[in-house]
Amino acid sequence: MIYINKSVIDTKLVQMTIDSNSAYKIVDDASEIVDEKSNIYLEDRKDNYIRICPGTKIYRCCSYHNIDIMQGCPFDCAYCILQAYLEHDMIKVSTDTESIIQHVRSFQGNIRLGSGELSDSLALDNVVPFTKIIVPIVNELDNIQFEFKTKSANISNLLNLNPKNIVVSFSLNPESIVSKYELKTASVESRINAAAELIKYGYKVGFHFDPVIYVENYKELYTDLIGNLTSKISEDRIEFISISTFRAPQALLDSIKVRSKYTDLLNSDMIKSPDGKYRYYKSLRVDMLKTVYDSLRAEWKDVFIYFCMEHDTVWESVIGYDPGDRDKFELLFNNSFFT
C-alpha cells in the first residue's frame, strides 16, 4: 500500500505516483502506517540526499556518490545490510526531487552517482517513477554518470528515455543462491535478459557480482553463471563490473542469526577484519575473487573490472595492480566513461 504525507501531495513525484494508478492513502505522518516492507511512504523528509559512499581507509574504495531518495527495499535478501542499518521496514521515499536535482546540477567535476545504496533503484519504478524525473536531468549534463542498480527486471520506464550518461547495473548471483537468499527478486535469467533489452535501447549496462557467496561448489556455480552472461551480452556495452565477497558488520551477523532461516550464510570461514566487518579468510576470498575475475576475463578482455572494499594486497594477488587511494581509484572510472 502507498501512503502519502498530506504536505507533499502537490509534488511532482507524488503526482507521477498517483498517475501510475496505484491505490494510495493520505496520512498525517508515518505513525499511521504499519511498519512493514509492503508499505511505501512518500514523505516530506528533507536532508542530505547525496553522500559520498562511506568507504574505509584500510580497504580500497572509489568516490562513488549515493542518492538516498529511497530508504528501504521491497526485496528480502538474507545478507542485506539494510536490515541492520535502517530502523524501519517500510519504504520511505523523499519527494523533494527539486533539491536533489539542484544538488546534482551543482557538481563541478565528473561525478558518478547512484540510487541503489539504501534501496533497489528500479524495484518500485513502475509505482514511484523516479527514473522519469532524473534521467532527463542527467541527459542535460556532461559531468554526471548516473547508475540505477537493481535485482529486478523492472525496466519499462527506461525504454523511452533516450539515455546519455545512464548506466543500468544488475547484481548477479547463481540462480541457486538467488532463490535461496535473494527473496522476492527477479530470476538471474530475467536480469540478464533485461540488460540485453536495455542495450538495444542505447543503455550502457554494468554487473555487480556482489556479494559473491561461499558455497561448496562456488567455482562451478559462478563459472556457469558467467558463461551464461557472456553468451548473451556484448562486451562493448558494459560500463563496468564489480566483484566483492560477502562481508558483514557485527550488527548484520546478529540480525542474520535471529532471522533464523539463513544462518548457513555464516557457516563458513569468516574472520574479523580491521574495519570491524567480517569477511571470508583472505586465501579463500582471493580464490573466490579469482574464480569470478578469471572467468570474466577469459571472455571479456577489456571490460573494466573492480573490487568493492578490498585490500590492495588482494588487488595485487588477483589483478596484479593496486588502484590506489580514492582519487586515484576514481580516475579509473573517469577514464572509462568521461573521455
Partner: peptide, 16 residues
C-alpha cells in the same frame, strides 16, 4: 622452534 620469539599476524593477514 623459535620460542621465546614468536611469529604471528595481528589481523588474520588482512594487511598482508
Amino acid at each position: 622452534k623459535i620460542f621465546p620469539m614468536s611469529i604471528s599476524t595481528d589481523d588474520n593477514f588482512e594487511s598482508g
